[in-house]
Design a protein around this nucleic acid. Structure first.
Lengths: 360, 360
DNA sequence: ACCGCTCTCTGAATCGATACAGTACCCGTC
DNA sequence: GACGGGTACTGTATCGATTCAGAGAGCGGT
């Protein structure tokens, strides 16, 4: 109970340094002595160097902090986040680095920020964290390297070592909406995750330039760009806030678009998860996706292919892997620390030409 | 750069202790002084108490280590593991505790064990880690609390504070195999994850009592129990090892069972993920699941319902949540630290009565 | 016999914070 | 005016390791 380096050193009759070396620098002492030390350590029940003490002295903990979504357990519901995490884990695994998943409790901004302040890590990986959550500032204040996938403008202001791996959100969204507009849709609903609020799901009346959460905001702005370019009257575009990135919430949001007299003919969501909920909502009302109402998602999670969802594909596992690599082996060239990955428009069955009959 | 408690203390003109209190025990000093201290700290760029130093002194890090599958990134491929992790994250989140995902690199036993030795955590949660990986021993040696879901016999030998949350693997497997036997199947193949080897997928000739990985071993033994009870000749039972818990590997393993002249009429796998691969293998060969060959899985992941897979349902999110609760709020009563959760046989379309025509 | 070199091992300084006993002072009370 | 009881802050010991300059020994070469 409570054996330390010193205890072992005293027993063996060598200095503490030597015992330390036995564990951390085997080449610094003779193999025989090392064997003797380890044997005594085992006998005394010495569990090896205390990790906290070691990292205090070394100034390094071999772990990177992961900030995933506003709320950790939520992240495990989103297949895209899981895939991202997998890529991150692959990169970390190869470099013997642990991943510290930091809890971000709901309804406790201050507590969440404390968690970021107190995390024992060498760097941070931030994914899908809303702008109003001041995590980046704290990380910056701590002077730790960080890789994010959000607003490049914000990360550009940080002083520490910063990386970026993401996509051109707005451009991809534009491509998707252009496809929908080209099919003839003119009355459209846009469902955006967290664009105004994290507590209420429903229609909102905000100018797209004032949307809050960067990722969704850019996607919605991209949608609008394309719709305007196609000559759609913005008065016919309904904007709906989704309080969570969740299938049930997606269905609820879709309800607000479907249960009104001038029903829209297309619903664009800022994520596949929400779009799956939209499809549920259609099913409940006996509407056919791609015929009565066109539906699109974003991300291209595996289930999207299964249900034939038209969406934007963005790299998932690879994105996580690159994030990990940027943190663990930062390229000298700052240019190389800013990676914009390609996206693809994937057209499937949930989008189709406007149906004269039911849109009348 | 490099500001510490002392730096701040000197600037403000108070003692180091007081600055420490300003952060960790606000009730120990006047609000005015605290405000002044925090202001100076901010100005000096002091990022708050160093997490390593704090945890060294406190003897606590507010993190629990997670050992997930032999290989971390693999865990994110298994929907069951992800669900488990979600439950764990929920429990951790409520108690402001972080989750340290520990990398367990392939082909590096020693490195993996070091990772367990060096992890800065207060406790461990072990899930689906094979017996031959001596992680439990190390954790025990470190004297940290642990909750596992594997072999209760092993965990029973540990001296530290130990919890268990799992299911009666063998009983559940028995129920499943009894269902298959009752449908008339007599030539059966069993696919087991890691039952002999982690490098080769294919038929093996081992007595079930000598299988390696506890979870799969128990499941296979349960299968055999029921088959024997139903009068099946064990000579007609093929045992196939799966080198990974992976869909592709499942398909490969199934190939070994299907591409032989005395083709089996039922294939039982130790996990849903493997069973999905088995279904792929059937599809490739133009065989109908539930008609030509009956197929079963284990776990009841969401996709199982989608494809109509007969399987055993076991709690996933709940299992993770309970594991977290046992670690973070250990019940005083040792009995309550051993939780065996219920399982259900879920019969769907992939099992059916033996088909006279194609089994002849 | 002496130089220089490698190989092992030692000692002191250091990493940055927290716990706890203790001091100083103020205020009200009998 | 002595005393009890708070409140606000300080000082010191301590958590457990790593680092690095350097000491001493052994050894081949000249």
């Amino acid at each position: 109970m409570g054996a330390t380096l010193q205890t072992v050193a005293d027993q063996v009759g060598v200095s503490r340094s030597t015992v330390s070396n036995a564990y951390s620098r085997p080449d610094q002492l003779s193999p025989e002595l090392r064997a003797r030390i380890l044997a005594v350590a085992e006998r005394l029940g010495y569990p090896g160097p205390n990790p906290s003490a070691r990292s205090l002295r070394r100034g390094k903990v071999d772990a990177i902090g992961v900030l995933l979504t506003a709320n950790l357990s939520m992240a495990f519901r989103d297949p895209y986040a899981v895939a991202y995490l997998r890529g991150l884990a692959e990169a970390a695994e190869q470099r013997k680095t642990s991943l510290l998943l930091i809890p971000l409790p709901h309804n406790d901004q201050e507590g969440a920020l404390d968690a970021v302040r107190n995390a024992a890590v060498d760097a941070f990986c931030v994914y899908c964290v809303p702008d109003w959550f001041k995590a980046l500032e704290i990380i910056n204040f701590r002077g730790l390297p960080v890789v994010g996938g959000e607003d490049p403008a914000i990360t550009g202001q940080l002083s520490g070592e910063v990386g970026f791996v993401g996509i051109d959100e707005r451009k991809a969204a534009r491509r998707l909406a252009a496809h929908v507009a080209a099919l003839g849709h003119r009355r459209v609903a846009l469902i955006g995750h967290w664009i105004t609020d994290t507590s209420v799901t429903g229609p909102v009346d905000v100018h797209p330039d004032e949307l809050r959460y960067y990722v969704s905001g850019e996607r919605v702005r991209g949608f609008r760009d394309a719709l305007v370019a196609a000559g759609v009257d913005l008065a016919d575009v309904v904007l709906i806030n989704a309080a969570e990135n969740d299938r049930l919430v997606g269905a609820e949001a879709a309800g607000h678009a479907l249960d009104r007299q001038d029903r829209c003919t297309a619903i664009l969501s800022t994520s596949d998860v929400l779009a799956l909920g939209v499809l549920d909502a259609l099913a409940v009302r006996g509407l056919r996706p791609g015929r009565d109402v066109s539906v699109t998602g974003f991300d291209d999670i595996p289930e999207a292919a299964a249900v034939g969802l038209t969406t934007i594909r963005q790299p998932s596992v690879e994105r996580g892997r690159i994030a990990g690599e940027l943190l663990l082996d930062p390229p000298a060239d700052p240019q190389a620390r800013h990676r914009v990955l390609p996206t693809t428009l994937v057209v499937r069955a949930t989008t189709g030409p406007i149906n004269q009959e039911s849109s009348s």
